[in-house]
Nucleic acid binder design. Structure first.
Ligand SMILES: [Mn+2]
Ligand SMILES: [Mn+2]
Ligand SMILES: [Mn+2]
Ligand SMILES: [Mn+2]
Lengths: 222, 222
DNA sequence: CTTAAAATTTAGTCTTGCCTAAATTATTTT
DNA sequence: AAAATAATTTAGGCAAGACTAAATTTTAAG
């Protein structure tokens, strides 16, 4: 019984990986929302992934789902494809960081391991994608991430933007226009405990950012 | 009723295009062989393509199938993707002409029109792929091909290789090793009417080529 | 502790695209 | 022209993956 790695399977495993990064199992509903598939269908698929030999996920009714080591490796394979592709589309075809996600989302399932190696080599084995997200290594390990959400900073703290965990093109274009991109230095000057807004200085300009933005930007504190 | 353009649909249309280039309808069996799908299944799919609104193919029981203008445009779209991708994989990632076909076969179905435009521009809007095959134009017209099969040449005729109509990696590697690639000058020195072998001089070397090879190489007679 | 709300699962369908086996039609041979 | 062979179509099924509606379980409220 070789494992059937369909597009669908790959998307499930990728989303489960992302949802379980926090350490908790992924719930049926969350998974359904992320995949844009009805919860009832997700239950069915998750049961199948758990019944696979070897199992790709561990599943306990009403308790959510986690990846087995096999499932995790498969997820990291797809994530590596995705992030290498994004990097490559930006570097060689002039895509903007707002546009790459959608294209990579389709390509990630069809490229060969040879293709993966070729673009990785052509790019000089990059460690981060255009959004600053870490790229799983060739032997499928995810480097440790030691960044902090911008939302947890307080006035007088300075930091460097490391990564932006967002795919929405509109949000990404907005951040681009504010200069909030990986590598940029920022300083927090104000904090409002009522709405959790942060005032963030980028170069000369100061911007007031809500939680919707500050929880998606991860920084290294200086 | 918008047309459903699945991978499967695209592969059928592409093969039908290729099989009907000679002017005759494509038979169920030929299509089944090319697609590696059982004839019974092909009949079913062809009936569906004909019932689509607007129809993608014209189909008459036991008489084979041809493309409608709509189906032809869809086929040329896929073929343009395929050939641009091949060109691009060879030029930017160092693929050999023997390796590109398989990768392009999967990518052709998932790239966006934006991606198509970007690689076409990056390559300088090429007119031929690595095998010398003509690339359909952006407005989906196939340039006219005025080449002659090498098999029809006779002793003392000289020609330039224009294109090689083959996907088999082993054959392509073989031709590569003989120096039989697009742009190369050749001269026919001998012909055997018994086995239809041609002796073809490439530079200093002479090679005796059978019909299996000479019908797949297309040349421009000098 | 009981009830209402929310989350999840089960049961039953549907579509796509393929397959096998059997029936039919077309083409060759004799 | 009949028989044999080849090509094609029909009929019936199956697996993947999705959906809706109904049942169940868990969680939150009162
Ligand atoms: Mn995907
Ligand atoms: Mn990314
Ligand atoms: Mn294909
Ligand atoms: Mn080609």
């Amino acid at each position: 019984m070789p494992i059937t790695m369909t597009r669908s399977t790959q998307d499930y495993l990728k989303r489960i990986y992302e949802l379980t990064e926090c350490g908790l199992p992924a719930s049926t509903n969350d998974l359904a929302r992320e995949l844009d598939i009805k919860p009832a269908s997700v239950t069915g698929m998750v049961q199948k992934l758990a019944a696979e030999e070897p199992a790709l996920v561990e599943y306990h009714k009403h308790q959510g789902v986690t990846l087995t080591p096999t499932g995790k490796r498969a997820a990291l394979e797809v994530i590596r494809h995705h992030r290498l592709l994004e990097t490559w589309l930006v570097q060689t075809l002039g895509y903007s960081w707002a546009e790459v996600h959608e294209e990579a989302e389709r390509l990630e399932h069809v490229i060969s391991e040879d293709f993966e190696r070729r673009i990785a080599a052509a790019l000089g084995n990059p460690t981060r994608d255009p959004h600053g997200e870490l790229i799983p290594t060739e032997d499928l390990n995810m480097p440790v991430d030691d960044t902090t959400p911008l939302s947890s900073l307080r006035p007088n703290q300075s930091a460097t933007i490391q990564r932006v965990n967002a795919q929405d093109p509109n949000l990404l274009r907005h951040l681009d226009s504010l200069g909030l991109t990986p590598g940029i230095q920022i300083e927090v000057t104000e904090y409002s405990s009522f709405d959790n807004n942060l005032t963030v200085k980028v170069g000369q300009k100061a911007n007031v950012l809500g939680l919707n933005i500050t929880t998606k930007i991860f920084v290294e504190i200086k």
